[in-house]
Amino acid sequence: MAAVKFEQAMARLEAIVGQLENGDLSLDESLKIFEEGIRLSKNCLKVLEEAERKVEVLVQDTNGKKQLRAFSLDDDADEASLEP
C-alpha cells in the first residue's frame, strides 16, 4: 500500500508546512517537525523517482498457472488471443 503511505506523507508534509507557517510553535518544536518535513519530502520524491512505467497482463500458462507478463498495445492483438 505504497500509495497510502505516500498520501499520508504528503498530508503530513502539508500539515507541517501549515504549522510552521502559522508560526506559533517553539523553536525546538519547529526544528523537530522541520526535520520530519525534510525527511518526508525526500521520501516522497524518492517514491516519485522510483515509480516505473510498466504494463503487465495476467496470463494463464499451459500448466494453468497464472503469471504476469509484459503487455504493450502494439502486440495487444497477440495478447488478446491469450484471453481465456
Binding site: L48, A51, E52, R53, K54, V55, E56, V57, L58, V59, L68, F71, L73, D76, E79, A80, L82, E83, P84
Partner: peptide, 30 residues
C-alpha cells in the same frame, strides 16, 4: 476488463498521459 476492443487502449492512453510512471496490471476477463 476485456483485452479486445478500444476500452483497454483508451484507458492505457489516458492513464499514461496523466501519469507516465504508472504501473498497470491487467486481468483480462470476458
Amino acid at each position: 476488463t476485456s483485452l479486445s476492443g478500444a476500452v483497454i487502449r483508451d484507458m492505457l492512453t489516458v492513464l499514461h498521459r496523466r501519469c507516465p510512471t504508472l504501473h498497470i496490471i491487467i486481468v483480462p476477463v470476458q
